[in-house]
Design a protein around this nucleic acid. Structure first.
Lengths: 125, 125
DNA sequence: ACCATATATTCCCATATAAGAATATGTCAA
DNA sequence: TTGACATATTCTTATATGGGAATATATGGT
């Protein structure tokens, strides 16, 4: 099986940075024509249309035809699952104790890292 | 350009459902041996190792060698960016008004959906 | 009818999966 | 050393990208 489709769920849809960028443009809650988004994100129009298509598929944006324009609007509620999921780990950054513990663990990892050849200074892949 | 690597950032890493499942197992903050994770998520060991590898690459988990086991622990702090990002859209589900507005928009979309042939009842792709 | 504008769609391609199978590596114990 | 156990790595394969280029499909204006 290959990687799940970008339209499989919200998590896959927002994995793409450009898409998060576009969502960032729409965050004001107003309607946005594709062309205006294009100007802001500096991407070719077809690319933006495709990204908006993915976001529409998962329900993160909605479209309304108006004249020759298609107005996109953010449907932020669809992002709630992401927030809820991430919120589960809040304790990891809110509790001071956790931070200290993580630091200690990080050091342990680094120690092992330098000890293991297969654990090279992460030259990334 | 193809899709960004799963190890490109946290957002890409957590896009995979199995990986979120594994993270869910580690959420208790304790150390987990690969074998124990395998039992819980019902996936072949190599698959789990690979997923853990991706999570380690992005820093979401840390590893410590102990005997013949490798103990993985969640480094939840790495998920904060996801939480912060999602939090940006909180207003979309906290404000009553927003909810009403979204409902209206949703209906509009459905209307268009049935009007456009290219907008079929989303038989998914 | 004709043209310009706005947006979507199609085709091609390099790339990266994720799962499965098989195998390698590492470690403990007798 | 040998074997059992734990985990990682390698290979293969089907599949889905995302970008670029080209083109198609509206829609409005004259």
């Amino acid at each position: 099986m290959a990687r799940a489709a970008t339209t499989a769920d919200v998590f896959n849809a927002i994995a793409e940075p450009r898409r998060r960028e576009i969502i960032g443009v729409l965050v004001d809650g107003k309607e946005w024509a594709v062309g205006d988004v294009v100007k802001l994100v500096r991407l070719p129009q077809p690319a933006v249309s495709k990204h908006l298509g993915v976001l529409r598929r998962v329900g993160v944006v909605t479209v309304v035809k108006r004249g020759q324009h298609r107005m996109y609007r953010l449907n932020g509620a669809e992002l709630k699952p992401v927030h809820d999921w991430a919120k589960t780990f809040e304790k990891y950054w809110t509790h001071q104790i956790s931070r200290i513990k993580e630091r200690a663990e990080q050091k342990a990892v680094e120690r092992i890292g330098s000890a293991l050849p297969s654990e090279a200074p992460d030259s990334d892949k």
